[in-house]
Amino acid sequence: MTLAKSVTRVALATGLLLLIPLTAKLFIAEMAWSVGDFVAAGILLFGAGLTFVLIARMSDSTAYRLAVGVAVAAGLLLVWANLAVGLVGSEDNPANLLYLGVLAVALIGAFVARFRPLGMSNAMFAASLTYIVVTAVALFVWTPTGVAAEPQVKLLNVLVANGAFAAIWAVSGWLFRRATNSHRQLA
Rank of each mutant, 00 (worst) to 15 (best):
R184E: 15
L12E: 06
L17M: 14
M58I: 01
I108D: 07
V105W: 10
V160T: 09
I20D: 03
W80D: 08
A13N: 02
F165Y: 14
G42N: 04
V39D: 04
A71P: 01
I55M: 09
V68E: 02
V102K: 02
L76S: 02
N93E: 06
W142I: 15
V171A: 13
W80M: 04
N93S: 11
W142R: 10
P117R: 00
R65A: 10
A95F: 03
L87A: 07
G49H: 07
T180S: 12
T143D: 02
A73C: 07
D60S: 12
L98C: 03
N181M: 12
G119P: 01
R65H: 11
I132V: 15
L139E: 06
Q152D: 12
L107D: 03
A95E: 03
L17Q: 06
L78G: 06
Q185E: 14
V112D: 07
M124P: 03
N93C: 05
D37I: 01
A166P: 04
L139G: 06
D60T: 12
G101L: 08
W33Y: 13
P117K: 01
F27T: 15
L107C: 10
Q152M: 07
V134Q: 04
I132D: 03
L139D: 01
Y64P: 00
G15A: 10
L16Q: 04
Q185K: 09
G86V: 02
A29G: 06
L107Q: 05
R57D: 13
M1Q: 11
A81Y: 09
K154S: 08
V160W: 07
A148E: 15
L16T: 07
G69A: 14
G119M: 06
S90K: 10
L186D: 13
L78W: 00
A81Q: 13
W142C: 09
A179W: 00
M124H: 05
N181H: 10
G69S: 12
L155G: 10
V39K: 02
W80V: 00
G119D: 05
A167W: 00
Q152A: 14
L159Q: 08
S182N: 10
G69I: 04
P21A: 10
R57A: 15
M120F: 05
N157E: 15
A73H: 03
L139H: 04
A167V: 11
A41N: 07
L129P: 02
G109P: 02
A73N: 02
R178K: 13
A161K: 01
R116I: 01
F115I: 03
L103H: 06
S34T: 15
L3A: 14
L186M: 10
I43F: 09
H183A: 14
K25Q: 15
V137Q: 03
A106W: 05
L22G: 07
L22E: 04
G173W: 11
A56N: 02
L77R: 00
D37W: 04
A81F: 13
R184C: 01
N122Q: 14
A95S: 14
F176C: 04
T2G: 14
L87R: 14
A67T: 03
S61Q: 05
V68S: 01
P94M: 10
Y131E: 14
G101E: 09
G75V: 06
T143N: 10
V153W: 01
A161E: 04
A95K: 01
